[in-house]
Design a protein around this nucleic acid. Structure first.
Lengths: 330, 330
DNA sequence: CTGTTAGCGCTTTCAC
DNA sequence: GTGAAAGCGCTAACAG
């Protein structure tokens, strides 16, 4: 079912069909009607692929992610919501990453789909700087190096500061930190916030309490165990995101510890699961849906010739049930 | 940055570059190495679009949805998980639907991307029967008419039966039903289960208590109000999915009613938000992640020449806090 | 072993 | 008003 089938069925040339479909003028009303009739009858839809090779605008926005996990999915939901009333389609793409070439997946996706298939792209947690992209790009929660101006992130430093202060104000003195993905700015800012809170309270930071969770539950298991195996076990942990916070709780609970009585835990993100877990997770909320819609608005603006900007969203402490004063301070 | 840039930089023809990139043999080791060097240096990535027009296999699986909402997103997460260790990329696509042409969006997506860009597709809640698809397709929670054999759904009838029996066993006699999208088989089966539970208990069904929620919160608001405005107000409601159950609770709460004391509510799906809401929603659990991974396995099997099948997942009652015995039965 | 050629489905000059 | 032809970036015969 190609444009040629339609052309021959309507007794015209493919060029004419193309013009009719794209609403170009210079076509007799009768011809146009006839072609449209055939299109309808045959259920023909122009191939996005083929047309994208000739046209510059496709009316498709790309969302590139490393993987469809809860964090990216929340953003995607926000993007989808913002694009509902626009004529844009959404194409979300997760390129499989061969082991070893994790870094730079977004450049690969962009080269493979950008320039032709999508008019603009939103990239979630890019790992490298994209220079000279084929289409406008806005980055969400980007890597740590120099980045293009179009980006959206959260006040990770402030959020981490608040989270840690909360734990300190509860009376905790030995607080572990499950660090995030080293290559992302957000992870570094959260560690900095954690350290700043300690400094402000005059509590020395024990570096052996800072462990890598990489923002992923499966990679945080070992760090979670190390926290609990520590000779001088901490009474609280600030995890750099909810997934690793939840993993920390799971590991602790499996060992017969109770959260928050034996161990207070605070996360970061406020994913839907944070409020659904038992105990409900105290966390720092990032407005992920808003970040998705903001990214869309910025991108649409850029597509319209507007300037790119850096938007930083506020982070807010959501008090729930996974923190309490430490036992020994009673 | 095209294959021609690479070719001229390496001093060979584009055909040679193509062969090197695709690992075809019949290329001198030296040439191959030189080309690969240039590719690496230039950061060239072959355009998925262009190559998909010539190749039959693209190593991309498409997931077509009407919109990226929580239900589809859970499935997508399952799909992504199942595809992690495979060489397949995932392309999730939501075509914008002009008002009035909602039905058949999946046919449009499939024509626009299928056959060339994706090797196979998973379609979430398709609205029409797809015959003669260009690539293998598996449908999740399909429409009500005759459907292809490759599909995955949940035991909606059994789940609805269980949900309604739960309400009846609590002592409820006037139970409203917020029906789902009429065109989907699941919605009809849930209504049937609701009716069957009444029949089994010898309770007549009051048809004025069956209202349309269309599976969407925004479309269920009016039905939720009607439930509460009913002259003989029901003491419980079984909503066909979680989103509308949550909307029912919101509307009731806004009116000063308390759930479950004044109104018991049970949903269907068990989305992450179901456990996160206050009160936590009692609901029928559909294993959405599993459904996503099962769809992948079935599709991969079909791509391998395997047969398509119909998999029906079990539905399970998850007791939480949004149901209790009715006031008057105390 | 390598290059030339054709063509995937479509849109776009440019003739007629 | 309409069609023929070129070409988007790439791959697959087929020559050389």
């Amino acid at each position: 079912m190609t444009i040629r089938d339609v052309a021959s069925a309507a007794g015209v040339s493919v060029a004419t069909v193309s013009k009719v479909i794209n609403g170009r003028d210079g076509i007799a009303a009768a011809t146009s009607a006839r072609v449209l009739g055939v299109v309808d009858e045959l259920g023909y839809e122009t191939s996005l692929i083929a047309s994208s090779m000739r046209k510059s605008r496709t009316q498709v926005i790309g969302v590139f992610v490393a993987e469809f996990e809860p964090f990216a999915l929340q953003l995607l939901q926000g993007v989808s919501y913002a694009l509902r009333e626009t004529p844009y389609d959404i194409l979300a793409y997760a390129g499989s990453v061969s082991p070893g070439e994790h870094a730079g997946w977004e450049r690969r996706s962009l080269s493979r789909l950008g320039g032709t298939l999508v008019d603009g792209a939103i990239i979630v947690t890019p790992t490298v700087t994209l220079d000279a992209t084929p289409v406008p790009v806005v980055a969400i929660d980007p890597h740590s190096g120099p980045t293009g101006p179009a980006m959206i992130d959260t006040d990770s430093f402030g959020g981490a500061l608040t989270a840690t202060e909360h734990l300190i104000s509860l009376g905790h003195r030995r607080i572990a930190h499950l660090r995030g993905r080293f290559d992302l700015a957000s992870a570094q800012q959260r560690e900095a916030g954690y350290r700043a809170a300690h400094a402000a309270a005059g509590i020395p930071v024990d570096d052996s309490l800072i462990l890598d969770g990489y923002y992923r539950a499966s990679l945080a298991t070992s760090a979670a165990n190390q926290v609990l195996d520590h000779a001088d076990r901490p009474t609280a942990v600030f995890a750099a995101n909810d997934m690793t916070a939840l993993e920390m709780i799971r590991v602790a609970t499996d060992r017969g510890l109770s959260v928050p009585e034996d161990l207070s835990v605070v996360g970061f993100d406020d994913l839907p699961t944070a409020a659904a877990s038992r105990p409900r997770l105290t966390t720092i909320r990032q407005p992920l849906l808003d970040m998705g819609t903001s990214a869309v608005h910025m991108l649409l603006g850029m597509l319209d010739g507007g300037a790119s900007e850096h938007i930083r969203m506020p982070a807010e402490l959501i008090l729930r049930d996974s923190t309490c004063p430490p036992r020994e301070s009673a």
